[in-house]
Structure formats: structure tokens, C-alpha cells
Design a protein around this nucleic acid. Sequence first.
DNA 1: AAACAGATCTACT
DNA 2: GTAGATCTGTTTT
Length: 213
Amino acid sequence: MPGLADRLAGPVLEVAPTLLGAVLRHETPQGAVAVRLTEVEAYAGEQDPGSHAYRGPTKRNEVMFGAPGRLYVYFTYGMHYCCNVVVGETGHASAVLLRAGEVVEGTDLARERRGNGPDRDLARGPARLCQALGIDLRHNGSDLGEGALALTLPEAPHHLEEVLTGPRVGLRHAADHPWRFWLADEPTVSVYRPAKRLSAEPRGPGRGRPGAP
DNA sequence: AAACAGATCTACT
DNA sequence: GTAGATCTGTTTT
């Protein structure tokens, strides 16, 4: 079977939906926690105004410019970490933000790290997901092919009917691209919050249709 | 050495 | 559902 990096080397908009259902597992001395991904967002590198790579390579985003199959971790809002899987060919700086997932192993340890709250919220949201898995800046650049932090792709991609798409969350620019993907009927998908500059949806937010314009 | 900017979360109504 | 707070790392002079 092909290596992880090979399966992630394609265009980010094609690879991102295939990460749904994948399992990210982190093994530490305290135990292991695994999360099944239910929501991701695509970031298209230097051409994407919403990407950290938009203004070219820096010390912080250099991992995105490297080989696919590695983890790009960044720090934000003074207290949160978020993690991305680097995809696309080396040098293209594409990445997929892991927005939410379902804890499928090590629930107790995840609860310890997260504190009190419903289990469905343990990895609901990009910063919560990192916290539940015990991921921080030390893991920036980690190879997910093998090691304590490993990503396992599903045997077969999900059917298109199960995948919904919509605009990305929390961006000032380029918020009109439907580059956010999530699995239908998953309680662990994070709440949709529209970008600040956009006019509110006439009907309730959070409902996306596959292929909707 | 200083200013900036933020791919968010938690709490509350 | 909505509003508000919040702190560090990164970037830039």
C-alpha cells in the first residue's frame, strides 16, 4: 500500500474530503488518545488570502512548504493551538486544518486534559481537538507516517452524499470559498460562525448541501 | 526591543 | 444564539 505522503500529495481540494473519517492517534507516557476526524478545512497556500502561507514563507509557516504528511501546528489567541496536515506537493504550502473529531480512544485521558464538559465537545473545534490529543508546538513538523503521533486514512473515502461543504470559519478574507468539509449527521462538528464581514444568512446557519453554490 | 494580529473558546441570556 | 475577553508568538522596526 502507498505511503501516507503519497496519498496526501494531490490537490488540497481533492485531498481534504478524503481526510474525513481518518484517525489521528497520539501516544504519550500518560496513555493514548485517538480522534476520528469529522470536520476539516482546506488552505491553498500562497494563492489563498486566508492561508498563513499567503505572505510567503516565514519561520512559523515553513513546515507548510515542506513535504506532505507532516503536522503544522500554530498558536493563536494567546492560549490555543491548532493543527493542520500538510498536503500537496513539496513547496506548494497547502494544508488541511483539523477542525473537529470524535474521540474514539482514551476518552478518560481526553477528559482530564479538557476538563469538565460533554464528551461530544472533547474534540469539537480545532483548539479543543489539539488539547484533547495533547498536541502543542513541540509537535510542529512531526511526520504522521509513523511515530507517537500517527494519522491513519480510511480504507475507502466516504461517499459524497455523506460529505457537506460550506464556507470556512473565522476568516476575514476569502470567506466565500466553500472549502470547509464535514460529515453529515455528526454531533461532533463544530458550530458554524459566519465571518464578521458577511451578511447573515436568511435561514439558519450550519446547514450545507453538497454541491450547493 | 515593541507592536501587531489572531483558521478561538467559554460563559452567559 | 450572542456577546465578550483574552494572551502569547510572530513579525517588523
